[in-house]
Nucleic acid binder design. Structure first.
Lengths: 232, 232
DNA sequence: GCCAATAAACGTCATAATGACATTTATTTT
DNA sequence: AAAATAAATGTCATTATGACGTTTATTGGC
């Protein structure tokens, strides 16, 4: 970017940071990926994965980059959450942080890369105290995830490509912290006709085995155009 | 703010702007308040009301300030919408803009103050072309308003304190661009018991006159705590 | 003073969606 | 062959929804 004078010159500039709330689902629990901060202040304390906005990248790109640096993942669900701009939110210097949340499949995640940052998964209901306003960010992200999964089929981003109805139900139970009646839950899903039933079963969790399904994004688009609205 | 060196020093700083999408409701139409840009580039073209983030204010405060400068209003509904950070979104200089949307009562709005900025109300379905990425911001704000009014009782912020059921229905029709059956609409509202019926009628729009109501925020809080969820 | 015009208020019925609940089925392990 | 496990499925009563027409209160014109 050029640094020639411009008519915004009298206005102050600010550090702009990105922070990512990274959700995963494992062992019937909703989890977030946290890192150990490697510099002062708050060195050694738990933190969201973040970084600073560079001149040559857009804000969305920057968030994606930061996510990639930690997880090695691209093309995952990432959405802007909120921008945090209280004056003293960061004690080092006045910084505006744009937070994003990401939904990833824990098995796709690059564990080796994570080690570099001292990354660890924590259950959403049992994570350590976090620096700055990161607890607020996590809470807001969880709220968003809850409201968004009710009306948009994004939960699938947290499951393997092939999943069972009971797995999906457990995911929703973890996200919304409530139990769903198995019969009513699968009735609702079947009625939406968004899932393709495969001719395979998953026998990890039961002797009988549960049918595997795939989410059908094309069908979803088609239904959307007909005025369908997802709701769970 | 002090300018002493800190460990973020190597990171680039950026201009941070605020933009407000200001909604109003008048003559059965949803409207937005736009101003005429007073400097180059794009001087004389229509724009959202915006400003730059100062060192001594939080981002939310800054948005509130900018809104106040144009409308003279405080204590109105304002909510952060989204942060726009594409590199070249502003041709003058790289600027990250945090957009907010506000819901105001058009009669409370200070017309004199507006003149200073060349402000004018435009129907949401018929406004002039806007600078930069402001059209995207307006579209996003409208989408947000639509989804938010479905599940939260914020529409009242656009009506006078006392309003009639038909007025409220017209508001929803304007926001969602569809017609609602008057009987079903008022049945739904009555069933929620969120409105206090007053012993006055509004005779502006009919010979019979329509009862005036007030939204009851305390009752809403009470119901919320009992697991009630608003939906229209 | 009566009639016409206006928009508000209100009720019913058929259909669809929801929530609550128990049994049967396929398979593996002992 | 029996026990254990979790998956799959059906019914019924209740509630919410969408579609529809008539009556009511009031004003203004004749």
């Amino acid at each position: 970017m050029n640094n020639s004078p411009n008519l915004y010159e009298p206005c102050p500039k600010h550090y702009v940071a990105l922070d990512n709330i990274i959700f995963g689902f494992d062992e019937k629990e909703l989890k977030i990926l946290l890192i150990k901060r490697s510099f002062e202040p708050e060195k050694g304390n738990w933190s969201l994965m973040g970084g600073f906005l560079k001149d040559e990248e857009g804000v969305d790109e920057a968030a994606t980059r930061v996510l990639y640096e930690l997880t090695g993942l691209r093309n995952v669900f990432v959405e802007q959450l909120h921008t945090y701009g209280a004056i003293h939110r960061d004690p080092v210097a006045r910084t505006v942080s744009v937070a994003y949340y990401a939904l990833i499949r824990v098995n796709d995640y690059d564990t080796e890369l994570g080690k570099k940052y001292g990354a660890r998964w924590f259950p959403i209901h049992n994570y350590p105290s976090l620096i700055f306003d990161h607890p607020q960010m996590v809470q807001d992200a969880l709220d968003r995830l809850r409201s968004k999964t009710r009306t948009q089929p994004i939960g699938f981003e947290l499951l393997p490509e092939k999943f069972t109805i009971p797995q999906l139900r457990h995911l929703y139970e973890a996200i919304h912290n409530q139990v769903y009646d198995p019969r009513n839950f699968s009735r609702k899903l079947n009625s939406m006709k968004l899932l393709i039933q495969l001719h395979e079963k998953d026998k990890e969790n039961s002797k009988k085995g549960a049918y595997l399904y795939k989410f059908d994004p094309n069908r979803y688009k088609m239904l959307l155009s007909q005025g369908f609205s997802f709701e769970l």
